[in-house]
Simulated assay, not measured.
Amino acid sequence: MAGDKPNGPVYEKGYRRRQIQRLFVIIDWMIQLSHGLEPAFLQAVHAIEEDKKMPYINTAERHGIEKGLQQGLEEAEIRVQKAKRETARRMIMQTEMNDALIAELSGLAESEVVELRREMKR
């Protein structure tokens, strides 16, 4: 396969690109670096990637990472909305603030505060 075997002194042993990628995965799995050492390791991996135009993460892995990040963002947004609602709920129960002020302080829309107040009266 053309381009399957990278050139350069790093690859003198005759390993193919896929073999080297698998080696990185195995090394990453086998070692648990302290947080202080991870940046140096990642910097070395990125240097090899740039030097040889060889991504450490394949397309499927990158897609999985992007999907995970998106799910994380969505979950974080749900938690933020719950926290805002809980904050507004506490303000409604513990203060005499009007809905506009509660909305401003909690980050909710005023209509959401009005709806919360209605729900709490039931």
Results as ranks from 00 to 15, higher is better:
Lys53Ile: 07
Lys53Met: 14
Lys53Val: 07
Lys53Phe: 01
Met54Asn: 13
Pro55Thr: 01
Pro55Ala: 02
Pro55Val: 04
Tyr56Leu: 05
Tyr56Gly: 03
Tyr56Lys: 09
Ile57Leu: 04
Ile57Lys: 01
Ile57Asp: 00
Asn58Glu: 08
Thr59Trp: 12
Thr59Ala: 11
Thr59Pro: 02
Thr59Glu: 14
Thr59Met: 11
Thr59Val: 10
Ala60Pro: 09
Ala60Asp: 14
Ala60Tyr: 13
Ala60Val: 09
Ala60Cys: 03
Ala60His: 15
Glu61Asp: 14
Arg62Ala: 11
Arg62Ser: 10
His63Asn: 09
His63Ala: 15
His63Met: 15
Gly64Trp: 12
Gly64Arg: 04
Gly64Asn: 12
Gly64Asp: 15
Gly64Gln: 09
Gly64His: 08
Ile65Thr: 02
Ile65Phe: 09
Glu66Asn: 13
Glu66Met: 15
Glu66Ile: 01
Lys67Trp: 14
Lys67Glu: 08
Lys67Asn: 13
Gly68Phe: 07
Gly68Asp: 07
Gly68Val: 04
Leu69Tyr: 11
Leu69His: 13
Leu69Asn: 06
Leu69Gln: 12
Gln70Pro: 03
Gln70His: 11
Gln70Asn: 07
Gln70Ala: 05
Gln71Ala: 04
Gln71Lys: 13
Gln71Thr: 06
Gln71Arg: 13
Leu73Ala: 12
Leu73Phe: 06
Leu73Gln: 10
Leu73Asp: 02
Glu74Met: 13
Glu74His: 01
Glu74Cys: 04
Glu74Gln: 12
Glu74Ser: 02
Glu74Leu: 13
Glu74Phe: 09
Glu75Lys: 15
Glu75Val: 10
Glu75Tyr: 05
Ala76Ser: 10
Ala76Asn: 10
Ala76Trp: 06
Ala76Phe: 14
Ala76Arg: 14
Ala76Gly: 12
Glu77Met: 03
Glu77Gly: 02
Glu77Arg: 00
Glu77Ile: 03
Glu77Val: 03
Glu77Asp: 10
Glu77Leu: 07
Ile78Gly: 03
Ile78Tyr: 08
Ile78Ala: 03
Arg79Cys: 06
Arg79Gln: 09
Arg79Tyr: 02
Arg79Glu: 11
Arg79Lys: 14
Val80Asn: 00
Val80Asp: 06
Gln81Ser: 08
Gln81Ala: 04
Gln81Pro: 00
Gln81Ile: 03
Lys82Leu: 06
Lys82Gln: 12
Lys82Ile: 00
Ala83Ile: 00
Ala83Lys: 00
Ala83Cys: 00
Ala83Thr: 03
Lys84Tyr: 00
Arg85Thr: 07
Arg85Lys: 12
Glu86Ile: 06
Glu86Leu: 00
Glu86Val: 09
Glu86His: 07
Thr87Met: 06
Thr87Asp: 04
Thr87Asn: 08
